[in-house]
Design a binder for these strands. Structure first.
Lengths: 112, 112
DNA sequence: ATAAACCTTTAACCATGGTTGAAGGTCAAG
DNA sequence: CTTGACCTTCAACCATGGTTAAAGGTTTAT
């Protein structure tokens, strides 16, 4: 239904990202719409680059609660800064690696 | 001397990145220049974005051997492609996050 | 009635890259 | 001769994000 494996759902539950769902008489879990949609939120957030603990940080304790727009925005903006930071690092790495290549292809060129 | 913690050096040794060094009579490790320089190579390679297993892949078994220029270049070029790949992913993430921000700031704008 | 296909729990395992601690040996200075 | 500061080994632990297996209960279909 959500494309998320059972073991992953259990993992999220045991780590507090998903609440304990109601159970049937036989002990089987029954998931409310709210929990399903929370799981989808987790999946999307992960795809946006949030770690599980970051996600846990901004999800409301009660899955029926709505996340505040202002919180969403500030979390997204923080993440944007982190992404920009990482982009900068990666670009520096790229620069270094490509200089190493140039050097190894022509050790006699002016740059060390 | 290299700025690398003892535990890290032991870790590298136990994972085959560094060879077993010679020992003094009392059992203390003695590091040859070759090993020290190998450790420095590892540190630099890590900074360039290589994982320990990648590093293990291109370091010669014998720390006294010299890495072939051609190998260096092809490893660096592979890494460059990986970096470019990652840059693309990160840029897509950035795009998504920044669209989410725009949406949350003005849910009525044309774009979903 | 029995097998397949689910569900439950708990525990262990994977990779990555280490750090920390315990128990003990060694060495130099005071 | 004792103290501090190193060294040794081995094992366990940390975070991250899960998967896999074992042992058992349930449900559905044939």
């Amino acid at each position: 239904m959500t494309g998320v494996s059972t073991s992953r759902i259990r993992f999220y539950e045991s780590h507090g990202l998903l609440p304990m769902p109601l159970r049937q008489e036989n002990g089987y879990r029954v998931y409310s719409e709210a929990i399903v949609s929370r799981l989808k939120t987790i999946t999307v957030s992960k795809a946006l680059g949030f770690s599980l603990s970051e996600i846990q940080g901004f999800l409301p304790d009660d899955p029926n609660d709505v996340i505040q727009r202002s919180d969403v925005v500030s979390n997204l903006e923080n993440k944007l800064h982190q992404i920009d930071q990482k982009l900068k690092e990666l670009q520096e790495m790229r620069e270094n690696v490509s200089q190493m290549i140039a050097y190894h292809k022509d050790p006699n060129s002016k740059k060390c």
